[in-house]
Amino acid sequence: MSSETVPTQLPRATYASMVTERLRDSIVNGSLAPGSQLSEAELATRFGVSRGPVREALQRLIQEGLVRAEPHRGVFVPVLTEDDVRDIYLARAALESAAVQHIITSSRSEAAADDLDAMVKLMAEAEAADDWEAVGRHDLDFHSALVAATGSERLQRMFSTVISETRLCLGVLTSADARSDLVDEHRQIAAMIRKRQTDKALAVLKQHFDDAVVTIKSREPDPEEDAG
Results as ranks from 00 to 15, higher is better:
185 E>Q: 15
186 H>S: 03
39 S>T: 04
153 E>S: 13
68 R>W: 04
35 G>V: 02
182 L>V: 11
127 E>R: 14
54 V>I: 13
15 Y>R: 10
58 L>Q: 05
171 G>F: 11
116 L>W: 01
100 V>K: 01
155 L>R: 00
181 D>A: 00
152 S>A: 09
42 E>A: 12
64 E>I: 04
115 D>L: 09
106 S>I: 11
103 I>G: 07
137 R>A: 15
69 A>E: 14
179 R>I: 02
183 V>C: 05
26 S>C: 02
133 E>I: 06
226 D>C: 01
165 E>I: 10
187 R>V: 09
38 L>D: 05
9 Q>R: 11
56 E>R: 14
90 L>A: 14
97 S>W: 13
227 A>N: 11
177 D>K: 10
49 V>H: 06
100 V>W: 01
37 Q>S: 14
124 A>C: 05
8 T>I: 08
212 A>G: 09
122 L>C: 08
152 S>N: 14
127 E>S: 12
128 A>I: 05
29 N>F: 01
6 V>I: 15
187 R>P: 00
141 D>T: 15
222 D>S: 01
52 G>S: 14
92 R>Y: 06
19 V>K: 09
107 S>L: 12
182 L>F: 11
94 A>P: 04
38 L>Y: 02
175 S>R: 15
42 E>H: 03
57 A>M: 10
205 L>G: 06
201 A>W: 01
33 A>C: 09
216 I>M: 11
84 D>R: 14
194 R>S: 04
74 G>V: 05
211 D>E: 11
197 Q>F: 13
28 V>F: 05
91 A>F: 00
9 Q>G: 05
59 Q>H: 15
171 G>C: 03
23 L>I: 15
34 P>G: 13
179 R>H: 10
80 L>Y: 02
102 H>A: 14
102 H>N: 11
169 C>E: 11
59 Q>V: 06
162 V>L: 02
63 Q>I: 03
184 D>T: 07
211 D>H: 11
54 V>D: 00
124 A>F: 00
202 L>T: 14
136 G>F: 07
57 A>I: 01
127 E>P: 03
216 I>C: 02
209 F>M: 04
11 P>H: 02
116 L>Q: 01
63 Q>V: 03
208 H>G: 12
187 R>L: 00
62 I>G: 09
26 S>N: 05
1 M>C: 12
143 H>Q: 05
74 G>Y: 08
92 R>E: 15
170 L>A: 06
55 R>Q: 12
18 M>N: 12
138 H>G: 07
119 M>N: 12
15 Y>N: 02
171 G>M: 05
218 S>W: 10
90 L>G: 13
214 V>N: 02
213 V>N: 07
184 D>L: 12
6 V>F: 13
94 A>D: 00
99 A>E: 01
8 T>D: 15
40 E>V: 05
199 D>I: 09
89 Y>V: 08
78 P>M: 09
221 P>D: 13
106 S>T: 13
111 A>E: 03
29 N>D: 15
161 T>C: 00
77 V>Y: 03
18 M>C: 11
167 R>L: 01
26 S>R: 12
42 E>R: 07
35 G>D: 10
149 A>E: 08
149 A>Y: 09
192 M>L: 12
147 V>Y: 00
50 S>Q: 04
133 E>D: 14
38 L>Q: 05
44 A>Q: 00
119 M>A: 14
136 G>S: 08
69 A>T: 12
32 L>K: 02
200 K>S: 09
58 L>I: 15
202 L>S: 06
224 E>Y: 06
199 D>N: 08
20 T>C: 01
